[in-house]
Design a protein around this nucleic acid. Structure first.
Lengths: 203, 203, 203, 203
DNA sequence: CATGAATGAGGGTTCATTCAT
DNA sequence: GATGAATGAACCCTCATTCAT
């Protein structure tokens, strides 16, 4: 079956947005790069914001699917599970890097997108929280107060969300090596709070 | 002495950029909000990019000055020094929040600015590194390998750079309480690597 | 028997044109509101102008039919006949109000429509003239010179044509009461030229 | 002193609107016909609506000035005064004919303009009313009930407002002769309600 | 130093219309 | 009869920038 025009538009938009940023990419650019007329683009999307929202929906689908795949292979909360998840998040953030780069601006400009993002963000936080709780239950994680757990989630999630940005603004190339380093940083943060013999390396 | 027009332009630009983002704020808006004519704005700055570069220079000056003030009052590497520095960085990131929000885009659009930023960024990394080295020398910090030190710098710097962004994208208000939480997160990351009796609170 | 698609298009177009004006209503809007595809609309009508022409034809049919019905019930030229006719014209002008509102523009944009309208308009004028002539013949109307008759037709026809517009531009609601007032105005104009005992009220 | 660009835009807009209607005349057309760039047009007016509002303001000024000039020369309420006023209104309606043609649509599309127009319209109605009251006081006009006065105002004002439209939709040329005929119609309506020797001719 | 009118390319978007299915 | 994706010209409007005064 032929690839739908709507999907081609989304795909092209992601590519161009990653290359030049949403503000520098006009709908006419997207149309031209997709090989369609401006009118046709507006047949499929009411406006530019809707394209971005469609991208975000795609992101949500991708992350649900891929994260699901990871959790069936690796037990969440184990070092291997954490490493795989972190690696996935980085790949994801790189694939849609314009989104994280411009996140605040996008969310400020489109409240609807803001709501959607916050909802997804909350879910993710809760998943991290659940992983930690499981670690506590199985004694893989050393005992922590409620407040400490919250701080821990913040630490982990900040790192996961912004590692790619961190590399970019520092002028470092984003590649397997630098992404793997992010995972090492994560392990270094977590290590002191884990019980003994969990020191397998990944990457 | 009267405030120079050039400075008023920069000040106004920062405010408007923070409110609406650089792309949504036109040079005519800035001129109008400053209370001058568009022509006059272009007498003081050759183009929009130059205004942003001027802002960045101001940022550099401010950070050198204020960080200098902190280091004369608090010994770097001590918990209090770290807390004060972190707090300053957060205030700073909030004051120029548009800059961090759009960092990648700005840097991509203006290579000159990119170089300047990377230079400053490197200096900051080296300062963090120096703090840790001093901690190792005074045994406040537990022994670490070279590689671990690097990872440690990454962890600390990622958090310091993106804590405000993290709050913003999570829909949390940026205020004293949430900024203080960032410091707590930082302390939690650092604590296991410090020697004993370091439990001073900040706020 | 099912209502024909062509008729449903016309009906929908009249409604939308009345609501938003012909220029603000696109053929795609009409198609969507009719519940059909744009392609299908263009199967039934070659272009937008043809839809408007079809509406005008409907208007002609409606007015012939309804005016015919009135003349069988009420003798033309009698006060009751005049009142009924005036009331009908007002209902008609309201039903197709977009048409009178935009008349000049429509006629200027589509010469064909212009010709059709002028033809109909002439017929109507001649009908009014005939009524007056009959009134003169039956002595219901006081003697008038040829020139006076012409002026009389102008007065009556201006009022009949534009009463709804007059209400609209004055910000008055168009309803039974305001339309009835139009008839009173008409009676006031005519009264001095009629012979005595004709003072029955209508409404 | 050179004619201001802003005034030239208004002047050009009136001409083009009269020729083709507001919807068919784009801001780019106006700019081109004025001999300026699109950007410059938008330097002087924020949008198309504002141009139309500026035209309306000009109309208000013109009518105040010219009507004032008439009332200093001719006593209001006298046949000559009425004739002069009617003639002025017709010249005025012809000069800004697009406005009356599209009045309802314009007012529907721009509520601000609607308010302004209604305000002006009310003032005019009150002026007509005052003329009649004066006629009653000086016994130039035969006694009338309050209700009759209201109807009289409606009759006169409908005719004055829409005579030009009436000519246009009837396919008649608008010129001195046809405008003079409008005055004759007006006289014919008024005559029966006036006392004796009023037979001055105009046009 | 400063004004403000002016430019013109380009942005997002709409729309009448076509055509393969 | 009907669908709906597709076209491309045009529309309203914004903006960085220039320049005569």
């Amino acid at each position: 079956m032929k690839v739908k025009t709507k999907d081609r538009i989304v795909e092209t938009a992601v590519r161009l947005f990653n290359e030049k940023g949403t503000k520098s990419v006009s709908t006419n650019h997207i149309a031209a790069a997709t090989g369609i007329s401006p009118g046709n683009l507006y047949y499929h999307f009411r406006n530019k914001e809707e394209i971005i929202r469609a991208i975000f929906e795609q992101m949500t689908n991708v992350s649900v699917q891929e994260y699901g795949a990871i959790t069936t292979q690796f037990e969440p909360g184990t070092p291997e599970g954490v490493a795989q998840t972190f690696a996935f998040i980085q790949r994801f953030n790189w694939r849609y890097r314009f989104f994280k780069r411009e996140l605040t601006a996008l969310v400020m400009a489109d409240p609807l997108l803001g709501e959607q993002f916050r909802a997804t963000n909350d879910i993710t936080r809760r998943m991290i929280r659940a992983s930690i709780d499981q670690g506590l239950a199985t004694a893989r994680v050393k005992p922590l107060t409620e407040h400490e757990i919250e701080l821990f989630v913040d630490a982990v999630w900040t790192l996961a969300l912004f590692w790619v940005n961190y590399l970019e603004v520092g002028g470092e190339e984003v590649n397997d090596a630098t992404l793997a380093r992010g995972n090492e940083v994560l392990r270094m943060i977590m290590a002191p709070y884990l019980n003994t013999e969990t020191t397998a390396t990944t990457g």
